[in-house]
Design a binder for these strands. Structure first.
Length: 221
DNA sequence: CCAGACGTTGTT
DNA sequence: GTCTGG
DNA sequence: CCAGACGTTGTT
DNA sequence: GTCTGG
């Protein structure tokens, strides 16, 4: 699955990688992004691609309160088009979530070892997501999102049985954001086929409050 | 029809 | 054990 | 994902 | 809002 990730690249890199229009809100490097926090999300708008903060953990429009979002941090690729909580978003509200790495916890006996997964060169990449809007009782609109998961590739299969969907470049970003063909969209939601790096990191990364880059301790393998 | 859930992962 | 908050 | 709380009434 | 279970 995907329960934590990092986003450490600067905005000029993001702007170029995702062909964004000029306006970017003020983003800081983050090394330990947790569910429930606001994360940068890229969507298609009539004026082009925009990036804006959304709460991680999708809140369906019919929800009575925001609590349900904590259970909706991931959506399975195999069923995202059918589940009542996700199907509308899958049809009409898809997004890209920029990341430079994500964590998976490998179970080694009783111990859970956090692993950081990155792409070669610490390159920024796009997680496939869906988003929703929810009208709060006070009249404000809450935007939220979920990260889609799939089976692990060869780098992850020894670590965990799910991994987030990574879209492989502009040739996949554009159809994911704008195409209206459920079969093709489904086809994009497959395990990433490119190279990856996998490093054990200190268990201090477990704290959701800790946004300190000093926590990452790459090992040689 | 109404009532109640609406999710994933992992563990047993 | 299960839920909430981060 | 992990960490930390998990409850009510009434009194200060 | 929409689906599932009874």
């Amino acid at each position: 699955m995907c329960g934590r990730f990092i986003m450490t690249v600067d905005f000029e890199m993001i702007k170029a990688a995702f062909r964004l229009r000029a306006e970017l809100y003020d983003l800081q490097p983050r090394y330990n992004i947790a569910p429930g926090q606001d994360i940068p999300v890229i969507t298609n708008t009539p004026g082009g691609r925009e990036i804006s903060p959304m709460r991680w953990g999708l809140i369906p429009h019919w929800a009575k309160d925001t609590k349900i979002g904590y259970k909706m941090i991931n959506a399975r690729a195999e069923t995202v088009g059918e589940k009542p909580a996700f199907k509308g978003a899958f049809r009409r509200r898809r997004c890209l979530i920029p990341a430079s790495g994500f964590y998976e916890w490998k179970k080694e006996g009783k111990v859970k070892q956090p692993m950081l997964i990155t792409l070669p060169g610490e390159k920024v990449f796009a997680l496939a997501g869906i988003w929703e809007h929810w009208l709060a009782p006070d009249g404000s609109m809450v935007y939220s999102c979920s990260i889609i998961t799939t089976k692990p590739n060869k780098y992850l299969e020894g670590i965990h049985n799910r991994m987030p969907v990574i879209l492989a470049g502009e040739q996949e970003y554009e159809p994911w954001l704008s195409l209206d063909d459920p079969l093709f969209l489904q086809h994009l939601l497959r395990p990433y086929e490119g190279d990856m790096s996998v490093y054990p990191v200190t268990t201090r990364v477990n704290s959701p409050l800790d946004d300190d880059p000093g926590l990452i301790e790459p090992h040689d393998d």
